[in-house]
């Protein structure tokens, strides 16, 4: 039982927290800009590498590098929106989807040019896990990631329900036509969407590096579970996306637990879980668990 918690549940929650932070942006961009942002994973990669540079240049720990990574990643996202997505805003959104597919490639190749393709880590050395109740062993990094994600979730909830911009974003996500009738400024809302989406993607990227390592394909490989999490939570429901991310992260880890002496699925097929969940959602509940929009 303790093995289950220590080696499957806690890592599952950690992985889920990373998916969740990425999926918030996917869900918000889908809800407000109305397109599936294929460059979101690579935006995460960009954030992780900004964090890496901050760690290298300033000699600070990875957690302290987060604000720098967030700020720079937000600028990158705002620039990408201005240069690549805004010119296509009046067209059917599928053109923006295609553009974002290309932006993903641009992000990745720039990262490969600047930082190279070797895997990197923020810090070397073994961290002693924290032991609770004699047998619950949790790695420090897992505690950090889980607690930070919980705090971000609370902050996000407060932002969406108690600030003018948060309510504006939910209104635009509900009904963009009515939002413009109410005189809300769509471009300002879009800017804030990028700032939050990119900021959380950067944090998620640094968390990936903290948990394992940083490499140039990391974000692209996380795109599928992030999409699945956003769909599971319901499009335009950022808090739903967090729940979706956690469910998928936990499901991926638990499915490899040897419940009946043998794991449910081979660990090499872990990332198939997200896809299966995505298909089930599309077939049975296209609006997701929390009644999001159907685009």
């Amino acid at each position: 039982m303790m093995d289950f918690i220590n080696f499957y549940l806690v890592p599952g929650i950690t992985l889920g927290a990373i998916y969740a932070l990425g999926a918030v942006g996917v869900s918000m961009i889908f809800g407000i800009l109305r397109f599936a942002h294929f460059a979101h994973g690579d935006l995460m990669t960009v954030g992780a590498y900004f964090g890496l540079s901050a760690v290298w240049l300033l000699g600070i720990p990875a957690l302290a590098a987060i604000p720098i990574a967030v700020a720079l990643t937000c600028l990158v996202a705002l620039f990408a929106d201005r240069a690549f997505y805004k010119p296509l805003r009046q067209l059917p959104t599928i053109y923006t989807v295609i553009a974002s597919f290309g932006v993903a490639l641009i992000f990745r190749s720039v990262v490969q040019l600047v930082w190279g393709t070797e895997s990197q880590v923020y810090s070397v050395g073994f961290q002693k896990p924290i032991v609770l109740f004699d047998s619950l062993r949790i790695a420090t990094r897992h505690i950090q990631i889980i607690l930070a994600t919980a705090a971000i979730t609370l902050g996000l909830h407060w932002f969406l329900h108690h600030t003018q911009m948060g309510k504006t974003m939910r209104a635009v996500s509900d009904d963009p036509a009515l939002a413009s009738v109410a005189g809300l400024d769509p471009e300002k809302t879009i800017r804030w969407t990028w700032i939050i989406g990119a900021g959380l993607a950067a944090i998620a990227g640094v968390f990936v590096g903290l948990d394992t390592d940083v490499h140039t394909m990391m974000g692209w490989n996380l795109l599928l579970p992030m999409f699945a999490a956003a769909l599971l939570g319901g499009i335009g429901k950022p808090l739903g996306a967090i729940a979706g991310g956690l469910i998928i992260g936990i499901a991926e880890e638990i499915c490899t637990y040897p419940f009946f002496g043998e794991s449910l699925i081979s660990p090499s097929y872990k990332s198939a879980i997200a896809f299966v969940i995505m298909l089930l959602i599309l077939i049975f509940r296209p609006r997701g668990l929390f009644k999001g929009r159907l685009l």
């Binding site: 294929f38 959104t93 999409f227 769909l231 298909l279 296209p286 685009l295």
Partner: peptide, 10 residues
């Protein structure tokens, strides 16, 4: 179309 795009990546 976006949903098909996501599923086809999968």
């Amino acid at each position: 179309a976006d949903y098909l795009a996501m599923a086809s990546i999968g």
